[in-house]
């Protein structure tokens, strides 16, 4: 899917698994404030970081993520 990007050289892809109440809200606020950051992250929202099962992180890495950010 990302051939167009691939042509420009390798770009890492990160997964962020974040708490709905703080980090996800923070990511929204970044948008509202139009703070620009690289488009290499895909955010997955969970109700609480306590819900994150460690194997999510492993599975994400297995699925091709170059890094996983857990924030909450």
């Amino acid at each position: 899917m990302a051939e167009s990007l691939a042509n420009k050289g390798w770009e890492p892809k990160f997964v962020a698994i974040v708490c709905n109440w703080c980090t996800y809200a923070g990511a929204d606020l970044a948008g509202i404030s139009r703070i620009q950051y690289p488009p290499n992250v895909r955010i997955i929202r969970v109700p609480c970081t306590g819900r994150i099962n460690p194997f999510y992180i492993v599975k994400a890495l297995q699925s091709g993520a170059d890094g996983v950010l857990v924030s909450g």
Partner: peptide, 14 residues
Amino acid sequence: RDQNSWVHMHEPEA
């Protein structure tokens, strides 16, 4: 929007 178009305003393709 909040987590995409607003934060990558100068990178339409990405």
